[in-house]
Structure formats: C-alpha cells, structure tokens
C-alpha cells in the first residue's frame, strides 16, 4: 500500500534520509523507532509528501507522491495523519475541526459530515466536548480529536508522528488505547513512537532508524527477541532501562 524506494534527502551537505526503502502492506501496522534526529519524522512526512525528498520514489496505492502531476491534496485526503503537537486548529471547535476537510475536501453536505463527526466523537469518548475549543481540552483529549479528524476522511491508512510524545504520562494510555483499537480493526498504520509496549502489542513489524538510514526492518518478535544491529540493541537497552 505504501512503498518507499531508495528515498534520500539532503539539506545542503547534511543528509537527513539515506537511501531508505520499506513497504507497508494493507492492514499492516509498522512502528518506526530510533534515537532523536534519526530522521523518523522526516521519513513519515515523505509518505504523504509533506516533506519533499531529493531522490527516490514514494508510492501510495501505486500513485507516486513525488511526481509533478500527482494531485497531492487528493492523495493526502486518503491518508490520515496525526501529529506530535496535535495541530488542532485553535480557532475552531472540536466538531468544526473534524468537519472542515469533510466539507471542503470531500464535499460532503453538512448533515452527513456532522453525523460522521458525532459518531467519531462518541467513539473517542468525547461526545460532551464537541463545542469546546482546543485550548479548553486536555492534551489527551486534543489528540483524540485529532485522530477523529483524520478518521473522518475514511482514510485507507493512518500516519502517526510521535502521537504521545507531547502528552503528560497519565494521558498517554487514553491515546494508545484508541490506536490499539484501530490496529485491531485492521487499519493500515505507520507509527513513529518510543512506546515499545505499544509496538510489542500491535506492531507487525518494527523499523529501526539511525542517522537517516534504516538499520533494521524486522518482524516485531524478531526485533525484540534478537535485534541484529548493535545500535538497535543500545537503543533498546536505553529506553527499556527504567
């Protein structure tokens, strides 16, 4: 479904992504991890063309993301994305955030959009918060609204860029629970995260990155059992220490 072939990206002399190749099949959950600055966020943003890349090819459902004649907005509308800092639009209520792209991109009529929004808010346990504005919600609530906003587009896949890194510890679980639920339903997901518990529980594969390159791409069992690279071992021992 999502395929990266030899993707590289430079900022001047500095190489952010180094010849990265990977594929995510339909229904697969792939966790991307690695030390900070390893290029994970850049990699996931290449998947829907938010970050331009210097060389290589990214395709979604056979459509090339980098090709100049690709209608990026139409492609992005089919891929949901969730950000580290939620990125809800501060001047819109929770419901309006979820409605916006349904109305302006999919062209749904207001009643249909609102019904979808209500259904998703209820599913996220946020039915009472529909008219609240982002600044009136907790971090965990905001991130669940953001997930609902992405799901409202009926995406074929979801991208998560460190969805729990900006959250207070007590709110991480409520967001992870929603993500586990999605994975159980068979959603295709790429998740950049340090939550190794989540990875172990739902990921089919784990991709480990360092210095812009993909060092390991292994099944979850293999990754946590016997990671082959020394760097992945060091990384795991550091974050699993406590």
């Amino acid at each position: 479904m999502i395929e990266l072939k030899n993707v590289s990206k430079w900022y001047g002399e500095f190489r952010v992504l180094d010849d990265c190749s990977m594929r995510i099949a339909k229904g697969e959950v792939v966790v991307i991890c690695g030390p900070s600055g390893s290029g994970k966020s850049t990699l996931i943003k290449c998947m829907n063309g938010l970050e331009p890349f210097t060389r290589g090819e990214v395709t979604i459902d056979g459509i090339s993301v980098g090709a100049p004649d690709t209608q990026l907005p139409r492609l992005r509308a089919r891929i949901g994305m969730v950000f580290q800092n939620f990125e809800l639009f501060p001047h819109m209520s929770a419901a309006a955030n979820i409605n916006l792209a349904q109305l302006k991109v999919l062209g749904r009529d207001r009643a249909t959009a609102q019904a979808k929004t209500d259904e998703l808010l209820a599913r996220m346990g946020l039915a009472d918060h529909a008219t609240k504005f982002p600044a009136q919600l907790s971090g965990g609530q905001q991130q669940r609204v953001a997930i609902a906003r992405a799901l409202a587009m009926d995406p074929i896949a979801m991208l998560f860029d460190e969805p729990t890194s900006a959250l207070d510890p007590e709110m991480i679980t409520e967001v992870l629970d929603v993500m586990v639920g999605l994975a159980d339903e068979g959603m295709t997901m790429a998740v950049v995260t340090h939550e190794m518990g989540f990875a172990r529980k739902v990921a089919h594969r784990v991709v480990f990155m360092d210095e812009g390159a993909i060092i390991e791409d292994a099944s979850t069992a293999a990754f946590f059992g016997t990671p082959r690279s020394e760097r992945a071992q060091q990384f795991l021992s550091k974050i699993l220490q406590h």
Binding site: N48, P73, R74, R76, M81, N85, E87, L88, F89, V105
Partner: peptide
C-alpha cells in the same frame, strides 16, 4: 503560526 498547522491542513487534503 507554527508550521505544523500548515502541515496538518495539507495532510487532510486541503489545498
């Protein structure tokens, strides 16, 4: 306005 807002808008398919 943080760049992430722009990204979030694009990511949901807005032009």
């Amino acid at each position: 306005i943080p760049r992430g807002q722009h990204h979030a808008g694009l990511a949901m398919g807005l032009t």
